[in-house]
């Protein structure tokens, strides 16, 4: 079972397909769950401690918007941990404020820089594209360690 980073990190479709084909999707939900469930941390409401901006500083300099560092504190360790990645290029749902926009750019850049197997797609807008989208993801995931045969 490989760890596959999904972009957008909140994507229902990517998260479902990666898990369905036998791998572990790494996205925003897992990072947030780790925060809200970790016992001992008591920094409500989101259990963000002073350690988190320090983690974010590994990926973004201090002069970039603080939202970028905060988000990278969640996404950065997951990108380092990932064995592969799937990127959807035209994800309107990833649209957001400047912090989101710059984080999205940085996440895509870091995924490319890591030189792990990457699959880049666009969301399907018809049945034909849907068939190709799912077939491409299944073929990509089958090529990873522990994947089902295509």
């Amino acid at each position: 079972m490989a760890k596959v980073f999904i972009y957008p990190g909140t994507s229902l479709i990517l998260s479902d397909l990666v898990a369905r084909f036998g791998h572990r999707p790494l996205g925003a939900a897992l990072a947030v769950r780790e925060k809200v469930q970790t016992p001992g941390l008591d920094s409500p409401p989101l259990q963000i401690t002073p350690e988190d901006p320090k983690k974010g500083l590994r990926y973004a300099a201090v002069e970039v918007p603080s939202g970028v560092r905060g988000r990278m504190a969640l996404y950065g360790p997951q990108i380092e941990e990932a064995d592969a990645g799937i990127i959807v290029r035209d994800a309107d749902l990833a649209f957001g404020c400047m912090g989101c926009a710059r984080t999205n750019e940085l996440v895509r850049f870091l995924l490319h820089r890591r030189e792990i197997p990457l699959l880049e797609l666009t969301y399907p807008r018809s049945d034909e594209e849907g068939v190709r989208f799912v077939a491409a993801i299944k073929e990509f995931l089958a090529g990873l360690a522990g994947g089902e045969t295509a």
Binding site: L12, D92, Y123, P124, R125, E129, G130, V131, V134
Partner: peptide
């Protein structure tokens, strides 16, 4: 985000069925 993707899942369903 979920509302946005739920408009597209029927195409994913077609892909899975295929």
């Amino acid at each position: 985000g979920h509302e946005n993707e739920m408009k597209l899942v029927r195409y994913i369903s077609s892909g899975l069925r295929a």
